[in-house]
């Protein structure tokens, strides 16, 4: 009887330790994967650059739900970015544009857009799998440029 009570106490403490460890750093060691894309937004149905492909349907659908005035988005460049818990990873999308992703734990990420070597904007937010963050601006000819960061894993 007393031994069972003793064992139950030990197991309870072990449970507390486990929950605290998970609460402190959930998902530690698992890779965090992102898909980053540089897009060009236009109202023209076709891009003058034949290498540009239309963005995939899933991202296109999300973009249509945002307050953007363009009807077509073409992929200029697309990269995969992989980081680990607590790490910071940088990936270039063009000569002037790069994205830096830092895991802050608990599904929070710090996303930094770097333009011409300087940090332009830094955003900290939760980013569950499937959610996207779009950083964009106007481009010549009433078009736009967009960097789409999507967490895939």
């Amino acid at each position: 009887m007393r031994f069972k009570l003793f064992l139950a106490t030990l197991l309870t403490w072990a449970g507390v330790a486990g929950v605290m460890a998970l609460a402190a750093e959930p998902g530690k060691g698992r890779p965090l994967k992102f898909e980053i894309q540089l897009l060009w937004g236009t109202n023209d149905p076709e891009s003058p650059d034949p290498k540009h492909k239309p963005v995939d349907a899933e991202v296109a659908k999300k973009l249509k739900q945002l307050p953007l005035k363009w009807s077509h988005y073409f992929v200029v460049n697309k990269k995969s970015l992989q980081t680990t818990a607590g790490a910071e990873t940088k990936e270039a999308l063009s000569e002037k544009c790069a994205i830096e992703v830092k895991d802050l734990g608990k599904s929070l990420f710090e996303i930094t857009l770097i333009g011409k070597g300087e940090k332009v904007v830094k955003r900290t937010q939760s980013l569950p799998v499937g959610e996207i963050v779009v950083i964009g601006g106007n481009a010549p000819g009433e078009t736009s440029w967009l960097v789409v960061i999507k967490r895939t894993e």
Partner: peptide
């Protein structure tokens, strides 16, 4: 939509 837009003028 599970989407966030950050729009820059610069």
């Amino acid at each position: 939509a599970q989407a966030t837009l950050v729009w820059l003028s610069y």
